[in-house]
């Protein structure tokens, strides 16, 4: 826990950190606020969006796009340590390379906890105001999407850690992270049958927050085979472990 305290010392006065986090918060609020006016088939969604318990699925689905932003934030925090050469200094001063990876994964856990609690607050706020059914069972019956989102956010950010430790330059690492998650994997998915690619990192992670109304869509376009959120947590957690292990090995076997 001392590692986390030290990370807080570095982060709290860091303006860039707060700016990226503020962008995340503002975008989420803005999207949630305006999503009621989205029109589907000429009919405004209206308060439909905020109905418990489906609200949690919609909320986490929207939030999953912003994992990218959290990933970029983590990349900035890790690559800073290389550009300021502070990681090198910390290793000289006694930090082990495993602890270096561990301290950043604590930051990731902290950020994921923050964003999950933020979604909880956001969901409760909009839901309690606009939802017709505010009974306990309605509110909490599908709240398990929040822990799924938490796992997803952690996994996205640990992938960001890996890119940052591997590439070391913030700009390049951010580009590689976006290109991999949004381009490389989708192209691979396109060329592979669903029953194989559903286990690929991005697809498995995205299965944690499925698109609302997908069942309906599936009837029209043919079923899309993907893991259920509950099952997807298993590969997701394995990927988190793998990304952290690879980050450690990169650090272990390269000069600082």
């Amino acid at each position: 826990m001392n590692l986390l305290r030290t990370e807080f010392r570095k982060i709290l006065p860091y303006r860039t950190f707060w700016i990226i986090l503020a962008i995340f918060v503002l975008l989420m609020v803005l999207i949630l606020y305006t999503s009621s006016s989205i029109e589907v088939n000429g009919k405004s969604l209206g308060d439909e969006t905020y109905q418990f318990p489906e609200l949690w699925m919609r909320l986490t689905y929207v939030a999953h796009f912003f994992n990218l932003l959290l990933g970029i934030l983590v990349i900035v925090l890790v690559t800073d340590e290389f550009s300021y050469r502070t990681l090198r200094q910390q290793v000289i001063d006694g930090l082990s390379k495993a602890e270096a990876v561990l301290s950043k994964s604590y930051v990731v856990l902290g950020l994921a906890t923050f964003s999950t609690l933020f979604l909880l607050a956001l969901g409760l706020y909009f839901g309690l105001i606009y939802s017709k059914d505010t009974s306990g069972s309605a509110i909490f019956s599908q709240i398990d999407y929040l822990p799924y989102y938490f796992v997803q956010a952690v996994a996205y950010m640990t992938l960001a850690i890996l890119f940052a430790f591997f590439i070391r330059k913030s700009g390049l690492a951010i580009i590689a992270f976006i290109v991999y998650t949004k381009l490389v994997e989708p192209i691979i998915h396109y060329n592979l049958p669903d029953h194989i690619d559903k286990y690929f990192p991005m697809k498995a992670l995205d299965s944690l927050t499925p698109m609302p109304g997908q069942d309906l869509w599936g009837q029209v376009a043919g079923t899309i085979e993907q893991l259920s959120p509950g099952i997807a947590t298993i590969p997701a957690i394995l990927y988190i472990g793998l990304f952290l292990l690879l980050s450690y090995l990169v650090l272990r076997f390269r000069d600082l």
Binding site: N2, R5, T6, R9, K10, P13, Y14, R15, D80, Y84, R85, T86, R88, Q89, Q90, D93, G94, L95
Partner: peptide, 19 residues
């Protein structure tokens, strides 16, 4: 090697933690 945005004191606090 220090964090440019941290004060001298804060920087030393981070290092003291490490040591």
């Amino acid at each position: 090697n220090f964090y440019p945005y941290l004060s001298a004191r804060r920087n030393l606090e981070v290092i003291a933690d490490n040591k």
